[in-house]
């Protein structure tokens, strides 16, 4: 064990304080009785009760989660296919161009993506009659469009390091291409797939701009609700909700840590 100097320790403390003090402050304030976030009066659980009774807030959270699940999964499938296609199955200039084309939505302003998709859906509705109205699905499509680039990058960076001889060995031993793909490639890159999924899920969960363009009746997402809240002043219910959310994330993180540890035989 290397003994760390005081300077290193204080740097570490400062770094983590910078990352976590705002979150801790938010959580502490959710237990305040005050009507205004950030003002401490005395301990109370009333805002947690308010969250559980607030159907709008819960409904928005469910809509956001649905959209995030659909778009994360959808973009993982597309991102995986595009990453494989651009690393293994095409050559030269064409591959490079395709790879770049996929990444462009990542650097495009969200306002442009949101508005252009709205125009697209409008044209589609005029010509084909679908989508008949906007809602969860249209927002999810918008999110897939932006997040696919991130997943493409995550998975591709793993595929570039991929040792092709393992696949060739499997093929030599008689595995069909699909079997090679499922039992060799997918397991090896599964970590980057999972990482990409989580990234897409998070990006979708906190997107405001695209969602507010593409949403329709019955699909108010959480960020839209929070920003709409500012019209009447944000209440500590948002703090309480965030605390619950962070708690849920911590539990999930813990679980995945336990799972990944238990599945490590050596």
């Amino acid at each position: 064990m290397v003994k760390m100097s005081k300077a290193v320790v204080s740097c570490i403390i400062f770094g983590f304080a910078f990352l976590y003090i705002p979150i801790i402050a938010l959580m502490v304030n959710s237990f305040s009785d005050s009507d205004i976030p950030g003002v401490w009066t005395h301990f109370s659980m009333r805002w947690f009760k308010a969250v559980l009774e607030d159907r709008d807030l819960i409904g928005a959270a469910i809509a956001s989660l649905k959209i995030a699940l659909i778009s994360a999964t959808g973009s993982v499938v597309l991102g995986l296919l595009s990453a494989i296609a651009t690393t293994n199955y095409s050559t030269g200039r064409c591959r490079k161009m395709l790879g770049n084309l996929i990444v462009i939505p990542m650097i495009m302003p969200e306002v442009i993506i949101g508005f252009s998709l709205l125009m697209l859906f409008m044209a589609l509705e005029d010509i084909f009659g679908i989508p008949a109205e906007r809602g969860v699905i249209t927002v999810a499509i918008g999110h897939i469009m932006t997040t696919v680039a991130y997943i493409h990058m995550t998975i591709r960076s793993r595929l570039v390091l991929f040792d092709k001889s393992i696949e060739e060995a499997a093929a030599n031993l008689g595995a069909r291409p699909f079997a090679v793909f499922m039992s060799i490639k997918v397991p090896i890159i599964s970590r980057s797939i999972a990482a990409g999924w989580i990234l897409a899920f998070t990006l979708s969960l906190d997107d405001l701009v695209i969602a507010s363009f593409l949403t329709g009746p019955g699909a108010t997402t959480l960020p839209i609700l929070i920003f709409s809240n500012v019209r009447v002043g944000v209440t500590p219910a948002i703090n309480a909700f965030s605390t619950m959310f962070i708690g849920a994330v911590l539990v999930c993180g813990m679980l995945s840590f336990l799972i990944s540890r238990s599945s490590k035989p050596f």
């Binding site: 599964s190 999972a194 999924w197 799972i259 599945s263």
Partner: peptide, 9 residues
């Protein structure tokens, strides 16, 4: 890698 993470995926 196969067990846990594949399950997660």
């Amino acid at each position: 890698i196969q067990g846990g993470t594949c399950l997660v995926v």
